[in-house]
């Protein structure tokens, strides 16, 4: 995230910004990030001040214990408190089914279920989810049987390249559970946080509608 905000003296727009963010403590920033205020959405100056703040904090990367139940399996971890839940899944637990498309909360590729709710895992810190129940794409298949929504994605061509697919499916599960899959229009609206650059949208809507009908 933070490398999005380069810090060169030559960069336009860096002069004269000394807003309230420059007084933010790192702790506040982490809380902001945890409450889904995107680091990426901050101004350059804010981000710069964060990176400065962080670099002066000696224990920035000190690992902390974290317990997560991922796809039904309890995991005891030591995580860097700056790590996003997405990076912990992909890089620490090697659960690479969940994808990073933007790391900015703007594409939905990283969608997972946390305590049954769909969230974008790139915008939340793992350390804020101690004790949480996490479901990812890897956990849906049971005894070699695809979940009905997975099956529907294959049958209805809800995918092409497949990269947005794990996020679409997890989001689709959330959409159905929320009761937002009553009609194609409703599905289109409530699935609009998941971009599919291949344009498999018609199949995605058909798949979610089909699985919602079956459940």
């Amino acid at each position: 995230m933070t490398n999005q905000h380069q810090r060169s003296p030559g960069e336009a727009g860096t002069n004269g910004h000394s807003g309230p963010a420059s007084t933010l403590s790192r702790r506040t920033v982490l809380q902001m990030a945890g409450s889904a205020a995107s680091l990426a959405a901050m101004s350059h100056a804010e981000a710069q001040s964060i990176s400065e703040t962080q670099s002066t904090v000696a224990d920035a990367g000190a690992a902390r214990p974290l317990q997560l139940t991922v796809n039904g399996v309890s995991r005891e971890l030591e995580v860097d408190p700056r790590q996003s839940l997405l990076d912990v899944l992909r890089e620490t637990l090697d659960l690479t089914g969940t994808k990073k498309g933007c790391n900015q909360g703007a594409c939905g590729a990283c969608t997972i279920l946390v305590n049954g709710r769909r969230i974008v895992s790139c915008l939340t810190l793992a350390s804020m989810h101690d004790g949480a129940e996490i479901e990812t794409i890897e956990g849906l298949e049971k005894n070699g049987e695809l979940h009905p929504l997975q099956q529907a994605f294959v049958e209805h061509e809800g995918l092409q390249c497949g990269f947005c697919t794990p996020g679409q499916i997890m989001s689709g599960l959330g959409c159905i559970a929320e009761g937002h899959a009553g009609s194609p229009e409703e599905i289109r609206f409530w699935m609009s946080g998941n971009i599919c650059r291949c344009g498999a949208y018609p199949g995605i809507v058909a798949a979610v509608a089909d699985a919602a009908g079956r459940s």
């Binding site: 690479t96 089914g97 969940t98 997975q150 994605f153 294959v154 049958e155 995918l159």
Partner: peptide, 13 residues
């Protein structure tokens, strides 16, 4: 339907 569909919907691709 896609022969690689099952891999893509399970995160195994």
């Amino acid at each position: 339907t896609r022969v690689d569909g099952p891999r893509k919907v399970t995160g195994n691709a």
